[in-house]
């Protein structure tokens, strides 16, 4: 029973961190209608951006998250402007956005190698103390994990406020809901696409740095979590931001609970089996509405 409670706590905390890049992935899908796997690369570059600010410039780790957002956002806009937007433009109406999705996989490899070229292969760590777990009764909780989850929740709240209460956020939602109508209303789709891409890149960068806080930093950081990020977004329903959050918690808790019954080496497989179950019952994902 305690083991189950501990697995749920671990899963929820892991899910909160996973939710940040999952929101980034789903935001791009909502506004630009394609799966941008380069989110993994944005997370990696973001994590390094924050690392430079934290270790080279001496900025404390939490304020250095701003550097992670900036690096992730700039990388995202640069990749989109250089390659992905052109590929999207060439799609025929109704055609599945396969070419930009594949190009985004290539962009991830490129960004990973940019990180490797600039910072090398060796693992790096943030200038951040490591604390022993707190014991709440029989449950153990890491202070850093709690802090990461809190930061993730603040970032999610900030995104919801941005989407709900700013003009740029509302135009993004308009484009996501009905691109044709948004164009008729004179909304500049390219500009909105850029804002969405920057916001998503910034979130991915933030997520990358949060993952780096609890692990270490190397060029494969984003790539390692990409499968779980994609799974979270798909389970929640591609294009749905609340869905991505729910999906991240389901994947996080599912993977941890799996370790109670099977060898931990198989936990990824069990997580994906859970995804198959969800998608068999609701093909559009939990919060999906557009039959994606």
């Amino acid at each position: 029973m305690i083991a189950l409670a501990q697995a749920i706590v671990n899963g929820l905390l892991a899910g909160a961190t996973l939710a940040v890049p999952a929101i980034a992935f789903t935001t791009i899908f909502a506004v630009l209608r394609f799966a941008n796997f380069a989110v993994a690369g944005f997370a990696t570059l973001g994590a390094y951006g924050g690392w430079v600010e934290n270790t080279a410039l001496g900025v404390p780790a939490v304020p250095a998250l701003a550097g992670a957002c900036l690096a992730g956002g700039v990388a995202a806009v640069a990749v989109d402007d250089a390659a992905l937007r052109g590929l999207r433009r060439r799609l025929r109406p109704g055609e599945a956005a396969l070419a930009p999705a594949i190009a985004s996989v290539a962009a991830t490899l490129l960004l990973e190698n940019v990180a490797r070229f600039l910072f090398g292969n060796d693992p790096r760590g943030y200038n951040l103390p490591v604390y022993r777990d707190w014991h709440l009764g029989a449950l153990a909780v890491g202070p850093q994990q709690l802090a990461d989850a809190a930061i993730a929740l603040v970032a999610m709240a900030a995104l919801f406020l941005f989407l709900g209460f700013t003009r740029a956020g509302r135009t993004m939602r308009a484009v996501a809901d009905n691109p044709g109508l948004a164009a008729l209303k004179g909304i500049d789709a390219v500009r909105v696409g850029r804002i969405a891409t920057f916001a998503a890149g910034a979130l991915a960068g933030l997520g990358g740095m949060l993952i780096g806080f609890d692990t270490s930093l190397d060029p494969l950081l984003g790539f390692r979590v990409m499968l779980s990020v994609f799974a979270a977004a798909v389970v929640g329903g591609l294009g749905s931001i609340p869905g991505a959050v729910a999906g991240a918690f389901i994947v996080g808790v599912g993977e941890e609970m799996a370790t109670l019954v099977v060898d931990p080496a198989y936990r990824t497989a069990v997580g994906f089996a859970a995804i198959l179950v969800v998608l068999s019952l609701r093909p559009a994902g939990l919060f999906g509405v557009r039959g994606t």
Binding site: N10, R224, V225
Partner: peptide, 16 residues
Amino acid sequence: DIIYDASKTSFRTEVE
């Protein structure tokens, strides 16, 4: 002996 999946970003459960 626990054999873990090295592609994960946390091994809290295994370590516990």
